[in-house]
Design a protein around this nucleic acid. Structure first.
Lengths: 202, 202
DNA sequence: TCAGCGAGACGAACCGTCTCGTCTCGACAA
DNA sequence: TTGTCGAGACGAGACGGTTCGTCTCGCTGA
């Protein structure tokens, strides 16, 4: 006997409570930052017992992460990169959108709080990888693979490297506040990556 | 009258207490992580009154940051990049060392904790920029400028972009645990940047 | 003499657990 | 179909423990 598992039954879960908790968490993290955010305040604003939060989430970071995910989840659910046939154009579109999102002040506080939480909680990092980052990296890599097969990238281009060359600098600039995250910067990064991994020019 | 400033007199500061606090903070953040680290524990291990910490530091993050800085500060004090005349070789040296440091498990926990703290505390981010990041970016940029004048980079190469293309991917891979941070990866990144911004090949 | 020092008391906030009584839902019998 | 019943999630909040940041104390050294 391993004893009764304390895992609650998801089918009996109260959807209203769940939604109220996520909404309250999203509001409070934007108002207070994650440092001053407490489970008790979330419960109070959501009109919910503390136990209801502790029953379904393992940590404050997990609640905030779910709130972030619920707010940003594409209703269509499917993540996809444009494929017009022109790799440069498609990458510029994606990186411009990414830059725009990172530059949004409303996103900034929540995004930083979430990133900080993810960095120091291995379980949360795994969740973040599985539910957000890996899908994004995968669709990007697949778009690059198509381009490579079409001869728009060198035959020996390392796709993992390419993906990190695209997103890494944007992320680096955003986290450290190094400079403006505007369409021009996105275009510069794309141009550099294509210059490095595009078909040989000589 | 603005009232008496509560700023203590640095000339009367006890150097032994300061050093004991930084040592204790460095040990404890490695043992417990920054989440379970408390000011009271630092004071207890350092054999110091809590007020002595609150008198000189504004936050837990600031103490940890100072501890990190004190531990990593080059005694010679000056930060410099090698300049052998071969840009690729010099960049590989620097990025290999950076990758090695990031891959060090002992550095990992402290580094992540510090990064998380810096990301969510604007005052601390300013400090981090001034005392660590900007000097590093500056020496890197200057090395690139020399190379550009020597014709090892295109005349129109954007040096800010180049620096972010170098460090961004490493940082991105480290934070998200995307893959091994080994010398080979460092070399790949350098090769890509030189491919993008090196002298035209056509 | 006077400001920083070690020590620790203090009230407030929040933690995570727990115990109430209530409410909803599916199973089952009449 | 309808009534009864038990399981389990719910809102509320009491509880002891921990840490917070502030506040005295004498003590010490420049």
């Amino acid at each position: 006997m391993t004893g009764p598992q304390n895992t609650p039954d998801p089918s009996r879960r109260n959807e209203q409570s769940r939604a109220a908790i996520l909404t309250a968490a999203a509001e409070l993290v934007a108002e207070l930052g994650i440092g001053k955010l407490t489970i008790e305040k979330i419960a109070a604003r959501a009109g919910v017992g503390k136990q209801t939060i502790y029953r379904w989430w393992p940590s404050k970071g997990a609640v905030v992460f779910d709130a972030f995910l619920a707010a940003s989840e594409d209703p269509s659910g499917s993540l996809a990169l444009p494929d017009t046939g022109d790799l440069g154009e498609d990458l510029r579109t994606v990186l411009r959108l990414t830059a725009l999102e990172l530059a949004d002040p409303a996103f900034d506080r929540t995004g930083r709080a979430l990133t900080a939480e993810v960095l120091t909680d291995p379980a949360l990092l795994r969740d973040y990888r599985e539910r957000l980052l890996d899908p994004l990296l995968t669709v990007t890599r697949e778009r690059l693979r198509t381009a490579r097969e079409a001869g728009q990238l060198r035959a020996d281009a390392d796709l993992d490297l390419a993906v990190e060359l695209l997103y890494g600098p944007l992320y680096y600039r955003w986290l450290h506040g190094l400079g403006p995250l505007d369409p021009g910067y996105a275009d510069q990064v794309v141009a550099a990556v294509l210059g490095a991994l595009g078909p040989a020019r000589d």
